[in-house]
Design a protein around this nucleic acid. Structure first.
Length: 649
RNA sequence: GCCGCCUUAGCUCAGUCGGUAGAGCACCUCACUCGUAAUGAGGUUGUCCGCGGUUCGAUUCCGCGAGGCGGCUCCA
């Protein structure tokens, strides 16, 4: 990612100088010396390679954010003496620092801390690196119990690369960074570094929010107060980031869902259980109808299964022992425990097992919009993206071991095509595979074959592939499709999962050409994941401005005067007959108000009619962007709208 | 589930230092009949999230519960 020309090799007379002196550039945050990030104050030796790492780079931002985290910690300890330090790493878009304060931080505290940080930045404190022995560090950090624990971890060498702890003790030696004001030590922290030269070099930062986090991410540990901040290479970059956050908030599907009257979550029904209002129902129905049509074209067989089942089914599948705590508790009657189903696959297995199967039937693709219920913990329920009742567009495909590769390629193609039809076009893939852990079941060669098949399909797609070793489910590897939305956020969408476990547990078989009984391979495939979630993602992607084919109301007729109501009602009938979702606003609002209302509802087409139009047998289009097209003959107007819907634009 | 914050009209939000509440929008009625983002007048609306406690009196203070939000953990 960096140009090779920016790497320089230290000449003889450069030895003993600092990396900063050699690079001598204003936009440099830190140096990469022999491949390792170093402070600009790092003294180089002859033959070292030195590379400038600018602020506006991934590594540069990480360093400036890490330095900002130190400033945050110093500010907190200034204002709240006695507050203990956790860890403070850079993260995506910013940084955080965990604290154990004597009382929780308030929003007012946050403002005060931010102000104090500004003063520390102004003081131009130097970040100064100091190598210490473990004993020295222990003595110096006697009162910082969490830091002491980290030092202990380092001794045990159990700090992992991406746990956040590595920014403190991840290096080969133990180091402390001192903040020097002049020559006086103002503050210090156990830290691997590197840092910017001075606090003044932090170009732009802002504190965002407080939150809670467990020490080292473990619920059994004390809950710490985390302060999140963001920091950037320039004021403009900071501003752009804040603008993006505002944009994301405007697009929040929970907010748009209420504003556009699409869905709600009544307390009376319960947390995480959505009801879809008529407009949300219209969008959802179009999504389902289109999905059904495409599945039908692609050879899927439609099935239906009940919402509850006796517990034996989930004992057979092996789910109950593992997932009992995320299933709704059982209902007991007639001597059995009945559970709401948290997944559809066991029922689909029973369809396969209902009679003998021939190789001629394979691949057998079962599809269902299956409603499932999962008892998500109260703190994780979130809008439509994390709910307790959801409808999966769930498919289970049974195929031969030999046919698996081709089937996976076909399914991946199908998925990407359908997602593109819904307007998501920017993807990458993630391949989750096994590691050496013994939690993974099934024969190694089956894993190998399945992983190879997934890998091949991924390669054939031409999309970027991110490996996720160890991320597979215990019963098989998977590919997941990640989609980037209109403002660049990524969402995990579809997954294709190979399953060696279910066919075994349900003793699924088919008869092969040679007459032998063989075990099919099972693929799980959810495309939207859940309709609810996909609805939420699309709503945010489009910011509520659905393309005409998905819009809950596609056309609003607006008469200039109530005299023209009958005329527009007739136009409305023609559109309805052509399959268009149309409303005519015959309220006694003024037309300006009607336009405003339709505009706020983000209706794709407004058809306005007044005397001129009626006389000409025409209507006037107004589009969502405010442009217009007047005097269009009614027949042509209907055709234009039908065409736009058909083209899914 | 854990930590913190929050819950007042359908929505967004004021307010009551403890004496049962208000604005805008929405909604209803009437008048207006208008050519591209708000016509005017009048009116309705609340267990102040629920249950206990303290108090002469609780929407306000305290406790418990529910729901929401931000995180953590989790996400077959």
């Amino acid at each position: 990612m960096s140009e090779p020309s920016s790497v320089l090799t230290v000449p003889t007379d450069g030895a003993g100088r600092t990396a900063g002196e050699l690079l001598d550039r204003k936009d440099v945050a830190v140096a990469r010396v022999n491949g390792e990030l170093r402070d600009l104050a790092h003294v180089v030796a002859e033959g070292d390679t030195v590379e400038a790492v600018p602020y506006a780079s991934e590594d540069g931002r990480a360093v400036l954010r890490h330095s900002a985290a130190h400033v945050l910690a110093q500010a907190v300890q200034d204002l709240f003496p006695g507050t203990l330090l956790g860890i403070g790493p850079p993260v995506k878009d910013g940084f955080y620092y965990d604290f154990l304060p004597e009382r929780p931080f308030t929003p007012d505290d946050l403002a005060a801390i931010e102000k104090r940080m500004g003063q520390i930045v102004q003081q131009r404190q130097r970040f100064s690196r100091r190598v210490v022995s473990e004993d020295e560090a222990r003595e110096e950090l006697l009162h910082e119990r969490f830091k002491l624990e980290l030092i202990g971890l380092k001794g045990a060498e159990s700090g992992t690369a991406d746990s956040g702890e590595s920014v403190e003790v991840g290096g080969p030696e133990l180091t402390i960074y001192d903040n020097l004001t002049g020559d006086e030590r103002t503050w210090s922290d156990l830290c691997r570094g590197p840092h910017l030269p001075t606090t003044r070099d932090i170009p732009a930062f802002k504190l965002m929010r407080t939150a809670a986090a467990y020490w080292r991410g473990d619920q059994a540990n004390p809950a710490l107060q985390r302060i999140y901040g963001t920091a950037w290479e320039s004021r403009d970059a900071l501003k752009a980031h804040l603008t993006l956050l505002e944009e994301a908030e405007k697009r929040d599907h929970r907010r748009l869902g209420a504003e556009l009257d699409l869905f709600s979550f009544p307390d009376e029904i319960g947390s995480g259980l959505a009801i879809f209002h008529p407009k949300g129902g219209a969008v959802r129905r179009v999504m389902e109808d289109y999905s059904r049509k495409r599945h039908e074209e692609d050879g899927y067989l439609f099935v239906n299964t009940p919402h509850i089942t006796k517990e034996d089914l989930f004992l057979t599948s092996g789910h109950l022992p593992y997932y009992a705590d995320t299933m709704f508790p059982p209902m007991e009657f007639e001597g059995s425990n009945y559970y709401l189903k948290p997944m559809n696959c066991p029922m689909h297995n029973l369809i396969i097992r209902s009679r003998g199967r021939s190789y001629r039937e394979l691949p057998l693709r079962l599809f269902e919009f299956g409603s499932v219920y999962r008892y998500e913990k109260s703190g994780v329920v979130h809008g439509l993206t994390r709910v307790r009742g959801l409808t999966m567009d769930d498919s289970h495909i049974f195929t031969t071991r030999e046919g698996m590769g081709e089937e996976i390629r076909g399914v991946l193609d199908f998925i990407l095509g359908l997602l593109r039809d819904f307007g998501l076009t920017d993807f990458y893939l993630e391949l989750s595979t096994r590691d050496d852990s013994d939690k993974f079941i099934g024969e190694p060669d089956a894993w190998e074959a399945a992983t190879a098949a997934l890998q091949e399909a991924a390669d054939a797609s031409g999309l970027e592939l991110v490996p996720d070793p160890g991320g597979a489910a215990f019963y098989g590897p998977k590919i997941s499709v990640q989609a980037r939305d209109a403002i660049g956020r990524t969402w995990q969408m579809s997954t294709i999962q190979v399953d060696f476990n279910n066919p075994e547990r349900f003793d699924l078989e088919y008869q092969a050409p040679d007459g032998s009984r063989q075990r099919p391979v099972m693929l799980h495939r959810a495309l939207f994941g859940s309709i609810e979630r996909f609805f939420g993602v699309l709503l945010e992607h489009y910011a509520g401005v659905f393309p005409a084919w998905l819009a809950p109301v596609q056309v609003v007729g607006i008469p200039v005067h109530s005299d023209y109501d009958p005329y527009l009602l007739e136009v409305g009938e023609r559109l309805k007959a052509a399959g268009i979702r149309v409303e005519v606003d015959t309220s006694d609002d003024r037309m300006q108000k009607k336009i405003r209302n339709a505009q706020k509802a983000k209706v794709p087409f407004m058809l306005i009619a007044g005397g001129e139009d009626v006389e000409a047998g025409a209507v006037s289009f107004r589009f969502r962007d405010g442009t217009q097209d007047n005097g269009i003959p009614v027949g042509e107007a209907v055709e234009r709208i039908v065409q736009a819907v058909r083209d899914r634009v």
